[in-house]
Simulated scan of single mutants.
Amino acid sequence: METNKLKQLEEKIQEYETIISEMSAPIIPSIVPQTILVPITGLIRAERFEKIRVNVLNFISNKDVETAIIDLTDISGERVEGVCLEEIGRELHELSSAISLMGVRTLFVGLNPELVKRIVLDGIRLEAQTFADFQSALTHLMKEKGLEFRKIAE
């Protein structure tokens, strides 16, 4: 009987880990057509990048997406667990390369100075545009597409 309860608990833990993993890098359609936002939050572990990459590529393959905005605002030295900043730089390079191979442009937003320093010192090339924040990236995309916010007359 105890083995059965233990197995049920293990299954529940696995289910919760899956939910948490999916929530910590959700894929959100943007107000700019054919654009998605992927905010990466929470503790960063090497195995999470693989899950994020797979989720993003699967989403892109089933949708009409031209641009993926990867938001790294929440990534800092203390949020990284078991991964050095250099490795995060390499993971970001692989993520943007994979997205690019799917015909989708990558924009990174919210890179912090510590991560930028490691990326530059390690000679990692991010083949993507970068912006200080999500709003700057959206403003750029809207100008590119000839879109603008308008106040609706009441």
Results as ranks from 00 to 15, higher is better:
residue 117 K to T: 11
residue 119 I to V: 15
residue 87 E to A: 02
residue 100 S to T: 08
residue 142 M to D: 08
residue 21 S to T: 13
residue 108 F to H: 05
residue 73 T to S: 15
residue 53 R to S: 01
residue 71 D to M: 04
residue 39 P to V: 03
residue 74 D to R: 10
residue 45 R to N: 02
residue 52 I to K: 01
residue 81 E to H: 14
residue 107 L to A: 10
residue 81 E to Y: 06
residue 59 F to E: 01
residue 39 P to L: 12
residue 141 L to M: 10
residue 26 P to R: 13
residue 30 S to G: 15
residue 82 G to M: 03
residue 79 R to L: 02
residue 62 N to K: 07
residue 122 D to N: 14
residue 60 I to Y: 01
residue 65 V to F: 00
residue 57 L to A: 03
residue 93 H to R: 15
residue 94 E to Y: 15
residue 28 I to Y: 10
residue 49 F to D: 02
residue 106 T to C: 11
residue 28 I to P: 08
residue 74 D to L: 07
residue 97 S to I: 06
residue 65 V to G: 00
residue 67 T to R: 02
residue 60 I to V: 08
residue 55 N to A: 08
residue 47 E to D: 09
residue 118 R to G: 03
residue 134 F to E: 01
residue 43 L to M: 01
residue 132 A to R: 15
residue 109 V to R: 10
residue 100 S to I: 00
residue 47 E to Y: 05
residue 115 L to N: 01
residue 61 S to W: 00
residue 138 L to V: 13
residue 51 K to R: 09
residue 143 K to A: 13
residue 67 T to P: 01
residue 53 R to V: 00
residue 142 M to Y: 08
residue 30 S to L: 06
residue 65 V to T: 01
residue 136 S to T: 10
residue 49 F to V: 01
residue 118 R to S: 14
residue 92 L to K: 04
residue 137 A to W: 06
residue 114 E to C: 04
residue 143 K to F: 11
residue 29 P to V: 04
residue 64 D to P: 09
residue 78 E to M: 09
residue 102 M to E: 11
residue 127 E to C: 07
residue 46 A to I: 04
residue 122 D to S: 13
residue 22 E to D: 10
residue 81 E to S: 04
residue 123 G to M: 04
residue 57 L to N: 04
residue 139 T to A: 09
residue 55 N to K: 15
residue 96 S to K: 04
residue 102 M to G: 08
residue 126 L to M: 09
residue 24 S to P: 05
residue 37 L to A: 12
residue 85 L to V: 10
residue 28 I to K: 11
residue 57 L to D: 07
residue 50 E to T: 05
residue 71 D to F: 06
residue 22 E to V: 12
residue 92 L to V: 05
residue 116 V to F: 10
residue 124 I to D: 13
residue 113 P to Y: 15
residue 123 G to H: 11
residue 138 L to H: 04
residue 106 T to Q: 06
residue 54 V to K: 05
residue 113 P to A: 13
residue 88 I to P: 04
residue 100 S to R: 06
residue 26 P to E: 08
residue 36 I to M: 10
residue 35 T to A: 04
residue 137 A to F: 07
residue 47 E to H: 15
residue 58 N to D: 08
residue 53 R to K: 14
residue 80 V to C: 00
residue 102 M to K: 13
residue 122 D to K: 05
residue 72 L to D: 03
residue 125 R to D: 14
residue 65 V to A: 01
residue 123 G to W: 11
residue 60 I to W: 00
residue 83 V to E: 04
residue 95 L to S: 07
residue 122 D to W: 08
residue 118 R to Y: 11
